[in-house]
């Protein structure tokens, strides 16, 4: 499993202001989705890859492998969107009748699928930037400001902590089952998976009891204290962020009517 949080904890960009990073990423994602041309999301994606790889010092091989694996799914969806529109609008480039479905590629559907693909690309690169430079707990500390969300944010932090505990448990049980030929054929694989799920569930529930006991014995009163590092926004950060935002808006404005076909 690729865990992006490990990279974030070691990233040189971690020491930049968390809120600034989150705002920029939110801006990028929304600009990408609102853009009617594929150029803006592509521009955002390329800039984000550059920042993550060169300033964030993320291992290039790891990053590209993850990007290609995820974009593979986006590519399949984009192909489906291009081929199954029914071909009512635009000039027909290619058409084929399969049983009762018309597979038609038109200029309109092709343009639309390119747009969707580029949006997925831009959004994914922005998310990668955020999750590879900002540790999860720092991101969620923002929720503690709202009283309504106090219980919710504690739930988030606890879930986050327990994910890794149970993941290790899962890996260990699975290894033990595999060593005893638990996944030899389909039938035993089904049985092993069920046993895995049930023992995981029982262990988790027991852990829940222990957690409650541990929290109570440490005087838990409905509020947990976490260390919250505060990073200042420097002058250069502000300038860099402003330049980026302005250039995205400029690209958005000038390429609004651009289409590939």
């Amino acid at each position: 499993m690729h865990n992006l949080d490990d990279i974030a904890l070691l990233s040189p960009l971690r020491k930049k202001n968390t809120h600034l990073k989150m705002l920029i990423v939110l801006f990028c994602i929304i600009a990408g989705v609102l853009s009617p041309s594929p150029v803006t999301p592509l521009f955002i994606g390329v800039v984000m890859i550059f920042i993550t790889l060169f300033f964030g010092k993320v291992p290039k091989k790891f990053y590209l492998k993850l990007l290609f694996a995820t974009m593979g799914f986006a590519f399949i969806s984009a192909v489906m969107i291009a081929l199954f529109s029914g071909g009512i609008l635009g000039d027909v480039i290619f058409s084929y009748k399969l049983f009762f479905i018309n597979i038609v590629l038109t200029t309109n559907s092709l343009n639309h699928s390119i747009l969707i693909f580029s949006r997925a690309f831009g959004g994914l690169c922005s998310i990668f930037f955020l999750s590879m430079t900002t540790p999860m707990l720092e991101m969620f500390s923002i929720m503690k400001r709202v009283k309504f969300l106090n219980t919710f944010s504690e739930l988030v932090m606890l879930i986050y902590r327990y994910i890794f505990v149970f993941l290790e448990l899962l890996i260990n049980i699975r290894a033990a089952q595999t060593m005893r030929f638990g996944y030899d054929n389909t039938k035993s694989a089904l049985n092993s998976l069920s046993m895995l799920v049930s023992s995981l569930f029982i262990k988790t529930m027991d852990q829940g009891d222990k957690l409650f006991l541990a929290m109570n014995s440490r005087c838990y009163e409905g509020k947990m204290k976490y260390f919250e590092p505060c990073y200042k926004i420097t002058f250069t950060d502000t300038i860099a962020a402003l330049v980026f935002v302005v250039s995205v808006i400029a690209v958005f404005y000038f390429t609004m009517n651009f289409r590939f076909f």
Binding site: L158, L170, M205, Y220
Partner: peptide, 29 residues
């Protein structure tokens, strides 16, 4: 609903936390 239930019984929070982690781990299977 969560706030209400946790107020009634604080044990519920710990239970939900492990349940959430359980769903995540299950979905990574």
């Amino acid at each position: 609903q969560l706030n209400k239930k946790v107020k009634e019984n604080r044990e519920y929070l710990a239970l939900l936390a492990v349940a959430g982690a359980f769903i995540f781990v299950l979905s990574s299977l």
